[in-house]
């Protein structure tokens, strides 16, 4: 009983309760309290996460992570679907920032261009044309809010428990097997010629995958056009 991680368990349960309060349940009560409780849960969880480098690196990472997770929660709990889409876009920008923080520059801009710039805009179009009056009745009541929040608690708790156990000093990864040195990183993943190396790997080792992805995109394009065009009889 002594080595039960009290604060992470408390954070997860509080987060689950806050999520249940914030999900659209047909009334506006509890949303403010839920938001506050979620902020507290995130703060508790963040205090348990290890520090990443010096204070500047740490602050940048935690700000990006906080922005991402808060936007994700907002994207799921707001009642107006256009706001959900906008918060989803903010979450994409947060993940793009996280990609940039870890050295995946091309992925950061590719996520922004493709996901936030094309896919989400298309969804926004469909939303605005299909639901011009904003939040409808089916946006204000969700299915089984309590069970959904409980599911989220179980999933997040299980995942964080596994991660915590793996990275604990007596865990499976110690003594930090496979950790790369900074010279190794600078030669490979964090090389200054990032795009050149990425392109080399993409068209060298993963050439067939790229071609298959191209064919898949073509098939999806034609399929989408056929599905929509067929209705106009």
């Amino acid at each position: 009983m002594n080595d039960l991680p009290i604060i992470p368990i408390l954070a997860t349960l509080l987060g689950g309760l806050a999520f249940w309060l914030m999900l659209p349940r047909g009334t506006a009560r509890g949303r403010g309290v839920g938001a506050l409780a979620m902020a507290m849960a995130l703060g508790l969880a963040g205090s348990q996460m290890p520090r990443v480098g010096d204070w500047l690196d740490n602050s940048v990472f935690f700000i990006l992570a906080a922005v991402t997770i808060v936007s994700a929660v907002a994207a799921v709990t707001f009642r107006n679907p256009v706001y959900c889409a906008i918060w989803f876009g903010q979450m994409l920008l947060g993940t793009a920032g996280l990609f940039l923080f870890t050295g995946a520059q091309f992925l950061a801009v590719a996520t922004t261009v493709v996901y936030a710039g094309a896919i989400l805009v298309t969804f926004l179009f469909v939303l605005m044309l299909a639901q011009p009056e904003g939040k409808a009745a089916y946006d204000r009541v969700s299915w089984e809010a309590m069970l959904a929040a409980a599911t989220g608690v179980v999933v997040v708790a299980a995942l964080s428990m596994i991660i915590g156990r793996t990275f604990a000093p007596e865990g499976a990864l110690y003594p930090w097997l496979g950790m790369p040195t900074s010279q190794q990183l600078a030669a490979n993943v964090l090389t200054p010629a990032h795009v050149a190396r990425l392109g080399g790997e993409l068209f060298g080792r993963y050439l067939i995958a790229i071609e298959v992805a191209g064919v898949l995109l073509l098939v999806a394009l034609v399929g989408a056009a056929v599905i929509i065009g067929r209705e106009k009889r």
Binding site: V109, A110, V113, G117, P192, A193, H194, V195
Partner: peptide
């Protein structure tokens, strides 16, 4: 390193 695609991202 991704100079110009960054501008495309902001344009999007």
């Amino acid at each position: 390193d991704v100079g110009i695609i960054y501008m495309f991202a902001l344009g999007s």
